[in-house]
């Protein structure tokens, strides 16, 4: 197992967001988490790399326990990419600067090597011509591709995607999904919170359906779409496929 999540609980005040979530991921797998908003999908992602501390439960990346109090969290986070819904590119750095800063500051790479690596990653997301542009000069889709390149430049073992296309105009969603599909096909391990069912059908090894802080059902996309065990899963999948369409394959 590359990632093991065991019985995660999280509560904000009286509001129980996560009530015992467990699952695992093998290397090279892509899993998609779906579910109505407010069911703790984003919180779950943040509990995995401890951007939000879980109240209870444990997480392992390979042999290392992330949730251990003495875990060197910065070293672990450097191995887990995180792509935000709102991109969160560093506003004072160019696209190149954004992709380069991780290798430079976190890994202590030499500037020349980091620049070369960053250019390669920008090329990979199709944005080498925008290397000198600042985030404010890029479209949402371009910003999200830069943020994926920023994650890739750290050679992560796993990338967490938190609704990566939800803040984008419809016509910009395709270019981001395209990059994500090609990553999945190259064997990157990805855990994706999304409503893009086209993406899920195309590349997900498993769909995890969450509601009210627990995993209701999980399974291969084919089985989930055609033959969901729980009535609620089928209902949600139908509704979301209707809403978002499946054009993005």
């Amino acid at each position: 197992m590359l990632l093991r999540v065991e019985d995660i609980h999280k509560q904000y005040g009286k509001d129980k967001v996560l009530c015992g979530v467990s699952f695992g991921m093998k290397k090279g797998e892509t899993k998609v988490i779906i579910g109505p908003s407010g069911t703790g999908k984003s919180t779950l992602l943040r509990c995995i790399n401890r951007l939000t501390p879980a109240d209870q439960g444990r997480v392992w990346l390979e042999e290392e326990e992330i949730t251990h109090t003495r875990a060197s969290i910065n070293k672990i986070r450097a191995q887990i990419g995180f792509v935000f819904q709102s991109f969160n590119l560093f506003a004072h750095l160019t696209a190149l600067g954004n992709v380069r800063i991780g290798p430079l500051k976190v890994k202590g790479m030499k500037k020349d090597a980091a620049t070369k690596l960053a250019m390669e990653e920008l090329e990979r997301v199709g944005l080498s011509d925008k290397a000198d542009a600042y985030p404010a000069e890029l479209s949402g889709g371009q910003q999200q591709r830069v943020s994926i390149a920023r994650a890739l430049a750290m050679f992560p073992k796993l990338i967490l995607f938190d609704e990566p296309t939800s803040a984008l105009d419809p016509e910009l969603i395709g270019e981001v999904l395209e990059v994500m599909v090609s990553l999945a096909k190259e064997g990157m391990t990805m855990l994706v919170v999304t409503h893009e069912m086209g993406f899920a059908r195309a590349v997900a090894d498993e769909i995890i359906f969450m509601e009210n802080g627990v995993i209701v059902e999980q399974g291969e996309p084919k089985q989930m779409f055609t033959n969901a065990v729980h009535a609620r899963t089928g209902e949600f999948l139908n509704k979301i496929s209707e809403l978002y369409g499946e054009t993005s394959e």
């Binding site: 790399n49 951007l51 986070r77 995180f82 709102s86 969160n88 004072h92 800063i101 500051k105 976190v106």
Partner: peptide, 29 residues
């Protein structure tokens, strides 16, 4: 925006690193 700090921490920067490499250069301007 708080997302700047979050993004810096999520890639493995320490708090001090994030403050000096990400927050201060922006705050200065």
């Amino acid at each position: 925006p708080s997302g700047q700090m979050l993004a810096a921490r999520s890639m493995g920067m320490s708090r001090i690193q994030a403050i000096f490499s990400i927050i201060l250069p922006q705050a200065f301007r």
